[in-house]
Simulated assay, not measured.
Amino acid sequence: MRFRSTRPEAALHPAPAVPETMDAVVLDEPGAAETLRVDQVAVPTPVLSEVLVRVVAAGVNPIDAKTRAGRGMSSAIDSWPAVLGLDVSGVVVRAPFDAHPFPAGTEVYGMAAVPRTPGTYAEYVVVPTLSLARKPVSLSHVEAAGVPVAALTAWGIVVETALAHQGQRILIHAGSGGVGHFAVQFAAYFGAHVIATGSPRNLDWLRELGAAEVVDYTSTRFEDVVGTVDVVIDLIGNVSDDTGTRSLDVLRPGGLLIEVPTGAWPGFREAAAARGIRSTDFKTIPDGGALATIGRLLDSGAVRVYIERVFDLDEAGQAHAAIERGHTRGKVVLRVSDD
């Protein structure tokens, strides 16, 4: 006998018809931002625990641009053309079974399993159930699409790795970026004394987010003013002005350096160990449970997401160019369809 869900969503939102093809931003091979183009591709088919989501908005992340350029996750792409994009906010159109936690019609946000499956720069995407959460009710889809990768990265760094707590001193480099603006808020929420580096236009904003101290990196060398800290969250590395190496000068013995950008400072482990400092890199875990917790913080107003710019799907190349220019406040998002 077929089980019938008692969830009200299942009755109110029967699974809609799904087309066989869709618009998607495709990449034929690694290249420059302008090589991204819109084409018709097959709508992906969900299997096992995967959910099919109609994409309303897709976040754009630095890892997307790195992958497009032949770095990042590019080596794991096994067929071309490829569809990029990790962040999604949208509406479930197919669930694995009737009583699934996210039945058809549920508004969700989360992370796709790119490049194992096609990404979110498309009208539809398949997403593992455990990588999803219900969209915060206080956020639009555009706002919600800016959350998953950046907020889960910040949560993993600040809460699960640094164990942010009252009395702890945490220095966050690039505090106004996508990951950084969440990291500042999470660290402050859990009681840490937050010191954030940023450009002049972002200093007051960083204070609003919860930074107790701010440093204008364009005019001041942070090691001259911040004193000793327990944790450095390095979102820059040594790609510019040896930020990573200089961070060792402010960490206490036994302190923790969290080096986030892949390849930005290959020798950080050895350099930290030589100074008696602990260190680790970090990779984002697409944890729907953590994302649900973050959603509650967003709905309560304790944390907020900032979207600097929204592009249409066919402007994905321009979005990547904006990311690569750097100095973005908060997040860049692609608008894919209507709510």
Score class of each variant (00 low, 15 high):
D312V: 09
G295C: 02
R329A: 05
T228I: 14
S337P: 08
A164Y: 04
A321T: 02
E123H: 14
E143N: 07
F97Q: 09
V56L: 15
I236E: 01
G180A: 04
M111K: 02
D314G: 14
L132T: 10
D234V: 01
M1R: 00
S140L: 05
G254R: 01
Q40T: 08
V333G: 00
E50M: 14
D249P: 10
R221H: 13
R207L: 12
G198L: 10
A174W: 04
P286L: 10
T262V: 13
L257W: 01
E123S: 12
I323K: 00
R4N: 11
S140M: 06
V250W: 04
A196S: 15
Q166P: 05
Y217K: 15
V60Q: 08
V88S: 07
V336K: 14
V18M: 05
A11N: 12
I236Q: 01
M1T: 03
A95T: 08
E20H: 11
A154G: 01
H100G: 10
H13Q: 13
H193N: 11
P128R: 14
F182C: 00
S49M: 14
P62I: 05
G177Y: 00
L27A: 13
P30F: 03
R252D: 08
A33W: 07
M73D: 15
M73K: 15
V125F: 10
R37K: 15
A150W: 00
Y124K: 09
H181S: 00
F268T: 04
T280D: 07
I172F: 05
L36Y: 10
F97L: 08
P8T: 07
R94M: 11
A302N: 11
P14T: 04
D98N: 07
A15F: 05
A322Q: 03
H173A: 01
A196N: 15
D98S: 10
I172Q: 02
P16Y: 07
P266S: 12
A211C: 12
P286R: 11
H327V: 05
R221Y: 11
L235R: 00
K283C: 14
L84E: 06
R304E: 10
E29V: 04
V333W: 03
G288A: 03
I236T: 04
H173G: 03
S240L: 10
D216C: 15
T67R: 13
T153F: 06
D216P: 15
V91I: 06
F222P: 13
V214Q: 14
A99F: 12
A99S: 15
K135S: 10
R275S: 07
G31I: 04
P128H: 13
Q185G: 00
S240C: 07
A17C: 10
R7K: 14
P128W: 13
V60H: 08
A192D: 05
A82T: 02
R134D: 03
L139T: 09
L139D: 09
